[in-house]
Nucleic acid binder design. Structure first.
Lengths: 337, 337
DNA sequence: TTGAAAGCGCTACCAT
DNA sequence: ATGGTAGCGCTTTCAA
């Protein structure tokens, strides 16, 4: 059961290993006839190239790493699906690494991916630039940041138009008559989170209703975190009549808090989510939400990465996708009084 | 920026490459003092082993493959977390492959994992034995099946005690007074699905209430599939008063169907789910469910795999974990009449 | 157009 | 206890 090597094929055809290599790589230098004979023999022997040996020689492994903050979040899972939908058909293996949003795990994973000589890395919701990413760039390994933009440097970026997304949510609520609108934003100091808050402040200020203190809460992405933040907001002297949560999971946290206080949604509180995963569409949830084109985000990230793997001298690029908006039944006009 | 190799370290310390290799592998043959000097030099130069070169030589890559039927299902995501929680700290890279439950993609992924010389493969909800898995075993690559048991052969298996799980659900419903209990099982002819149906039939028959025709539906794992099946059951002359869905997502499909028909849960229909993911616990869902120890399943699978990676002569083993049961508000006594 | 041979970085053997 | 060296399977000059 020993492995079939290029040598076996060469012997079988009666040519050199070099010729087999060139033939299988479909190099123009080899005669069509020789190519045919080589392919035939390879087929018969069940030969397949060893990516490992090839990698040692060329430095190209045919694998790409994906570093993701939370694999168990359906939102990220959908994005991953988008990524592999382009990478897998091309024969790339994807090494998915989960970081639990922990900086040291991010670092660890990127370091290990580099040792394994991945051809490129997608940083999905990566918190910030690190020594490891710097090393990646220095080693010429292309990086694509997705969803969050880590500060600085030579990385391509795929994201959503956050100001537009925020305005979509605000316009909906404003037109329903809401004036005290709270915001639950991601706690981490990431660019999308900040862009959203800026758009939020700008919008409300522009309409003469600048947000009151306590109306913006920075939370982690967990359901519990948003639940707690919501409970705090409900204790404000003039609590919000509507809440914008910048992820579906956060919105679920809001609904938990409301349930605990015996408040009804949307009667007592309107809630707008972000993402619009399948959860938002469940009959019991029916969350009005900004919808994020998850698969498309993944697809674009993969394409940007491939582009730079093919030619690393290409400049980095940014792709910004437009959000949609889906009105369901978690929003309504505020109660009189 | 050329890579630091073992040769550089050897030169620096003034020993041979062989000694460096042995020292870093902590082989007892090397003096403690030499080891110290080698480690020191490696540190100073920023040397790290090349897993690729090592793999070419030893056949061990330090990577394991995970083939999963649906990455976007939070249930499987949780299991993956369990797997990596043991593999990652040990320095293993995990290559996660999504198959969308498609046989040809399963085959494709296993084949590619073998070419990449993974040290072992976890088959998470793998549908059936294939040429690729046979090849894996022939090549001496250990396989662990998780959740579903693919027919035959030399694979370790980690699963749940399905008969017990089913009885937990039935006992709960029976004691509430339900007698017409429907079952939504996975459509595929997998062993757990069948074990559950057998336990179901046996339980009800043993109590003199064998399931009527149409009370068991085989569905795919999607929300829509279960919705459709539920609608059909509701059209039966004597529709069930309770439904057991063998996954949380299926249970959500049931609730969709109920919502469409204007039926209330649990008043008009009790529903028991399987899995008990975070979705089941949401205030709007509150699904009574058999709870599956997802992380533990993953952890055991990883351990079984490591065991056989370390010593492939070890016999395959099975691990069967016990389910829990969580009563929430999707179940109640049947309505009078 | 094809072949011979070097070498990617490492480990395992055999000497010393 | 340490060193020399072959070779894992492949690609890539360079020569023929």
């Amino acid at each position: 059961m020993a492995r079939v090597t290029i040598r076996d094929v060469a012997k079988r055809v009666g040519v050199s290993e070099a010729t087999v290599s060139n033939a299988l790589a479909d190099k123009p230098i080899v005669t069509a006839e020789t190519k045919a004979r080589v392919r035939q023999a390879a087929e018969e022997l069940g030969y397949h190239i060893s990516p490992i040996a090839r990698a040692l020689r060329t430095g190209q492994t045919g694998t790409v790493g994906i570093v993701v903050s939370n694999l168990a979040n359906p939102f990220y899972a959908d994005i991953l699906l988008g990524i592999s939908s382009v990478l897998t058909p091309l024969g790339y293996q994807t090494i998915i690494c989960n970081t639990e949003s922990r900086a040291e795990l991010q670092e660890w994973h990127v370091t290990h991916l580099l040792r394994h000589m991945v051809d490129g890395i997608v940083l999905l919701s990566y918190s910030s630039e690190t020594k490891a990413t710097t090393r990646a760039l220095a080693a010429g390994v292309p990086l694509v940041a997705l969803w969050r933009r880590p500060g600085g440097s030579e990385v391509s970026f795929v994201g959503m138009d956050d100001p537009v997304a925020m305005r979509l949510a605000l316009e909906h609520l404003w037109s329903l008559g809401h004036r005290r609108i709270g915001l639950l934003r991601a706690h981490a100091a990431s660019s999308p989170s900040e862009a959203r808050q800026n758009a939020y402040t700008e919008y409300l200020t522009g309409r003469g209703a600048p947000p009151l203190p306590g109306m913006v809460a920075g939370v982690d992405l967990s359901i519990e975190g948003s639940r707690d933040a919501t409970l705090q907001m409900l204790d404000l002297p003039a609590p919000p009549t509507a809440l914008i949560a910048t992820s579906d999971l956060m919105a679920l946290g809001v609904t938990m808090a409301l349930a605990e206080r015996g408040l009804a949604m949307p009667a007592d509180m309107s809630v707008v989510g972000f993402e619009d995963t399948f959860i938002a569409g469940l009959p019991q949830i029916q969350l009005t939400a900004v919808s994020v084109p998850r698969r498309e985000l993944g697809i674009h990230a993969a394409e940007l990465l491939l582009e730079r793997i093919a030619d690393s001298s290409l400049p980095v690029r940014d792709v910004v996708l437009q959000p949609g908006f889906r009105i369901r039944s978690s929003t309504a006009p505020p109660q009189a009084g």
